[in-house]
């Protein structure tokens, strides 16, 4: 069994490039059957990890997008009391059968599937502080009981659970202890070149080199509130290519389409000031 596991060690897909650290973290999580908690700057591909892991391994993906109002139990199941009440008042349904009003949530569906799948719990930090703790037991045992019907849903095969966090709230220690953790670093130039080539396979070398130079110079400007990330770089390159900008234009100050890279007015000012300083030197 171990040999099989090693063969399947994950090194990304042709649409999604991973660092070795992240590949190992995925392997460890899959192998130990623990959730993988992924953190990192916005735009470093945390969510895409689950999407591409599922696509790369031909597994179905259950996606659970967390909001500030999300309750843990919603991931398991929801009980549509209002519909049942409605049916009972107007005599339109089989009201006695509560199971008809129970709808499984993303986690519940993954448990019931009976075959391997990937569950994405996206932006877990958006929810209430206690939210992760409420899921501890279900993620540990991979089963839960619906009190309304007394039915127990158990996962025949442990799903691969990927959890992303933007660090808006701290996660409880008990939850962290059960996860395999990986922090996606901002890619360096070499990895970035590979990532960009995935999205722009036929990009001109001079344009790519110039754009990367300008991009990392911009990221190094001190005091940016939201430094541009990978997804912004890719959009920016699309814009540059559509407009047919020559690589030479990226060398000096006054980058074209700066608005696709910087989203805050204060950052705009900071970048312009830094560019002016460099020119003065």
């Amino acid at each position: 069994m171990q040999a099989m596991q090693l063969q399947t060690s994950w090194r990304g897909t042709d649409r999604y490039i991973v660092s070795e650290e992240l590949g190992t973290a995925v392997d460890v999580a899959v192998h130990l059957g623990r959730p993988l908690l992924v953190k990192g700057e916005p735009g470093t591909g945390k969510t895409l990890l689950a999407v591409n892991l599922a696509a790369g391994r031909n597994l179905p993906l259950e996606r659970w997008q967390i909001k500030s109002t999300t309750k843990a139990v919603e991931g398991l199941y929801t009980y549509d009391t209002v519909r049942r009440l409605h049916d009972s008042r107007f005599g339109t349904g089989e009201v006695a059968d509560i199971a008809r009003y129970i709808e499984l949530g993303p986690l519940g569906r993954a448990f019931e599937r009976g075959e391997p799948c990937v569950v994405l719990i996206d932006e877990v930090d958006k929810a209430d502080l206690e939210f992760p703790n409420d899921l501890l037991h279900e993620l540990d045992t991979m089963s839960f009981t619906i009190p309304e019907t007394g039915r127990t849903v158990t996962a025949a095969v442990r799903p691969i659970v990927i959890i992303t966090s933007n660090n808006e709230k701290e996660l409880p220690d008990a939850f962290l202890r059960r996860c395999v953790f990986h922090f996606i670093e901002f890619p360096d130039r070499e990895l970035m070149t590979r990532i960009v080539r995935v999205h722009h396979p036929d990009i001109d070398d001079a344009l790519l080199a110039g754009a990367l130079e300008a991009f990392y110079r911009l990221r190094a400007v001190e005091g940016l509130r939201k430094p541009p990330s990978t997804s912004e770089l890719i959009d920016w390159l699309s814009a540059l290519r559509l407009a047919g900008i020559a690589p030479a234009k990226l060398l000096g100050a006054g980058l074209p389409f700066l608005g696709t890279l910087l989203k805050k007015e204060t950052d705009f000012d900071a970048a312009t000031r830094a560019a002016a300083r460099n020119r003065g030197r």
């Binding site: 060690s9 070795e20 190992t24 973290a25 192998h31 953190k39 395999v180 953790f181 990986h182």
Partner: peptide, 30 residues
Amino acid sequence: ALVRALADGLHQQSLEGFYRVARCLCCATE
């Protein structure tokens, strides 16, 4: 967890692999 991962050869018998496996299991935050 680390002993289990190492016993199963997830570090692929290298110090670099050990570094990566140990880091994702020992650090719960960056």
